[in-house]
């Protein structure tokens, strides 16, 4: 047994014990943050020692330190890929798709017939493997970010539509009657009552769609892209067995995903503080 394997088991047991110890402390606020961080750190350490201890070929599973080095080394490439895929492809598609879905939801909300038809249809489409349309969009809109934007628009549109329509529909009846007793106009009711009360649903849709947008933009690049972009890099570096670079890209995607999700949650907390789920 070599030293790294021994270290691996020591870290495992120590990490486990510390976590159990810490979790017995009640009501400490810093723990909410500290325990998961510690857990993540322990996993990284274990990964490192396991790779070194078992002599795993770095081509198959590079140790975290190698990934970190590669990350620090290729910041410029990572940045170019990030802009190409996430800003140009994912974000533009996300904004367009979600915006269009909310507007459509408001538009069809007036017509019960459309709502009854579109809601089951939208639910159905949300479950379909729309990523599969990526090759078609690449054919139509070219290799560059426009095709990625298009696939993201299609991917986020229906989940967002379904959520918005449900939100607009679930308005409390007595509040709606109240607006009627004030003789409020359609727009007044929309902006003062229905949109605010639909916000929890809209944010739920925005959160689901943020992950979908990342997936769509990256996977679409597997079907064709200029020589930059995260999906392109991942597929080409995998072909060259340069897995440290692939992991670095995945790290960027994960980080961007978490940050964006966190940002939306933060805005949600600010705007829907009144919702029962946010009251402690």
């Amino acid at each position: 047994m070599n030293i790294f394997l021994v270290l691996f088991f020591i870290v495992w047991i120590l990490g486990w014990l510390i976590n159990i110890r810490l979790s017995l402390i009640k009501n400490a606020k810093f723990l909410r943050f500290f325990i998961p961080t510690l857990f993540g750190f322990v996993i990284l350490l274990m990964w490192e020692f396991l790779v070194l201890g078992l002599n795993i070929n770095p081509v198959l599973l590079p140790p975290p330190t190698a990934i970190a080095l590669k990350f620090a080394d290729s910041l410029d490439i990572l940045w170019i890929d990030f802009v190409q895929t996430l800003i140009k492809g994912a974000l533009s598609g996300y904004i367009l798709g979600c915006g269009a879905a909310i507007l459509t939801a408001i538009a069809i909300d007036k017509f019960n017939f459309l709502k009854r038809g579109l809601l089951p249809f939208g639910n159905f489409v949300s479950a379909l493997p729309i990523v599969g349309m990526a090759p078609i969009f690449v054919m139509w809109f070219g290799f560059d970010w426009e095709s990625k934007c298009a696939i993201v628009v299609v991917m986020v549109f229906f989940p967002m539509l379904v959520n918005s329509v449900q939100g607009l529909e679930l308005v409390d009846h007595s509040r709606q009657d109240l607006m009627k007793t004030y003789n409020a106009s359609y727009t007044q009711t929309l902006f003062k009552l229905r949109l605010p009360s639909a916000l929890p649903f809209i944010f739920n849709g925005l959160k689901i769609c943020s992950t979908l947008a990342l997936i769509g933009a990256i996977v679409a690049e597997f079907f064709g892209s200029p020589i930059k972009g995260m999906g392109f890099r991942i597929s080409s570096e995998v072909g060259r067995f340069a897995l440290d670079m692939v992991w670095a890209e995945i790290f960027v995607a994960a980080l961007a995903g978490c940050l964006f999700y966190g940002l939306i949650s933060l805005i949600e907390k600010q705007l829907t503080f009144w919702h029962p789920s946010n009251q402690k």
Partner: peptide
């Protein structure tokens, strides 16, 4: 992990 585009790892 739900916010991470896991599909990106697929080819790897």
């Amino acid at each position: 992990s739900q916010t991470v585009p896991i599909l990106a790892i697929a080819p790897m």
